Amino acid sequence: MAPPTLTISDDTLTDRQKDVLDAALALLVHGGDGLTMTGVARRASCSKETLYKWFGDRDGLLTATVQWQASKVRMVPVDRESLDGRTLAIALEKFGRDWLSVLTGDISVALNRLAVSHAGQEKRNLGRIVLENGPIGMSKRCKPLLEAAREAGLLRFEDSDQAFRTFFGLVVRDTQIRMLLGEQRRPTEEAIATQARRAREQFFTLYGA
C-alpha cells in the first residue's frame, strides 16, 4: 500500500490520530519489534481498516509514528525580513531545548535503541525511518533559519550542512549516546536549558559574523 499522505504535525493530525500514534509509540517502547497493525489497532481501540486508510501499511505507520515524535521539536517561526541577533538566539535556543527534551525522553531513547539494533540486522526499515525523520529531518527544519541568518549578515559559513552538524554536536554533545548506553538519570529542565544556551553561545562564537 502507499505510504501516508499526512503531513505529520500537531496542527494537521486529528486528536484521534494523535491517540493512535501515541499508542504505537507506547508499543514500540514496551514491545520493541512487536509492533503490528493488529497490536496498534487493539491498543488504540480502532480498526485495522482505519490504520490502513490513514497510514498505508506497517512502514507507513512506523514513519508517521517517528514523524509524530520528531514533530515535538519545533522551530520558532521568524520573519526573514526582520531577523536580528536576539530573534536568532531565541529561535536556536528554543530549538535546542526542545531537541534535548525529546531526545532524552523514554520514548526517543527506546526508539533510537531499537533503530540501532535494526541497523545491524537485515531489517533496516526502522533505522532508515529514524535517520530520515530524526537528524536529517531536524536539518531540513533548521537550515533555512541558518541560511536566513547568513543572508541577514548575522552568521558566516560556506556550507549550511556543516554549520548544522556543528550546531547538532554542540547541542547534543555526548548526552544521547550516554542515554542509549543505559544512563538512567535524565537531565533536568534547568540542565537542558543551560546546555542549549551554551550550544548557541559557542555556535555564535564559531559562526557569528
Results as ranks from 00 to 15, higher is better:
P4D: 00
T5D: 01
L6E: 03
S9Y: 03
S9Q: 04
D11Y: 11
L13C: 01
T14D: 00
R16H: 07
Q17M: 05
Q17N: 00
K18C: 12
D19C: 01
L21K: 01
D22Q: 13
A26P: 01
L27W: 02
L28Y: 03
V29D: 08
H30Q: 13
G32F: 08
G32H: 10
G32E: 13
D33A: 10
G34T: 08
G34E: 06
T36I: 14
A44T: 05
C46K: 08
C46I: 15
S47Q: 10
Y52V: 13
F55E: 03
D59E: 14
L62M: 13
T63P: 04
V66C: 08
S71R: 02
K72T: 09
R74K: 15
R74T: 14
R74N: 07
P77S: 09
P77F: 10
P77T: 12
V78S: 05
D79A: 11
R80D: 15
D84Q: 12
R86Y: 05
A89N: 12
A89H: 06
I90T: 14
L92R: 04
E93D: 12
K94M: 13
G96C: 12
D98K: 10
L100G: 04
L100F: 08
S101W: 09
S101F: 09
S101L: 11
V102L: 15
V102Q: 11
T104N: 11
G105C: 13
G105S: 15
D106L: 13
D106G: 05
I107Q: 14
I107F: 06
I107M: 09
S108H: 08
S108C: 14
A110I: 12
R113M: 13
S117Q: 15
H118W: 13
G120W: 10
Q121Y: 05
R124C: 08
N125R: 11
G127Q: 09
I129A: 04
L131R: 08
L131K: 07
L131D: 08
N133H: 15
G134F: 03
G134S: 08
G134Q: 05
I136Y: 13
G137C: 05
M138C: 04
M138D: 06
S139I: 02
S139Y: 10
S139N: 11
S139F: 12
K140V: 11
K140H: 13
K140A: 14
R141V: 01
R141Q: 10
R141W: 06
C142R: 03
C142V: 14
K143W: 03
K143Q: 14
P144D: 03
P144N: 07
A148M: 11
A148L: 05
A149R: 01
A149H: 05
R150S: 09
R150I: 06
E151R: 11
G153L: 03
G153T: 04
L154Q: 04
R156H: 12
R156Q: 10
E158G: 09
E158F: 00
A163D: 00
A163E: 01
F164H: 11
F164E: 02
F168V: 01
F168N: 02
G169Q: 07
V171T: 10
V172I: 14
D174M: 04
I177K: 02
R178T: 00
M179Q: 06
M179A: 09
G182L: 03
R185D: 07
R185H: 01
R185W: 00
R186I: 10
P187G: 10
P187S: 12
E189L: 09
I192N: 01
R197D: 06
R198W: 11
E201H: 02
Q202T: 04
T205I: 00
G208D: 06
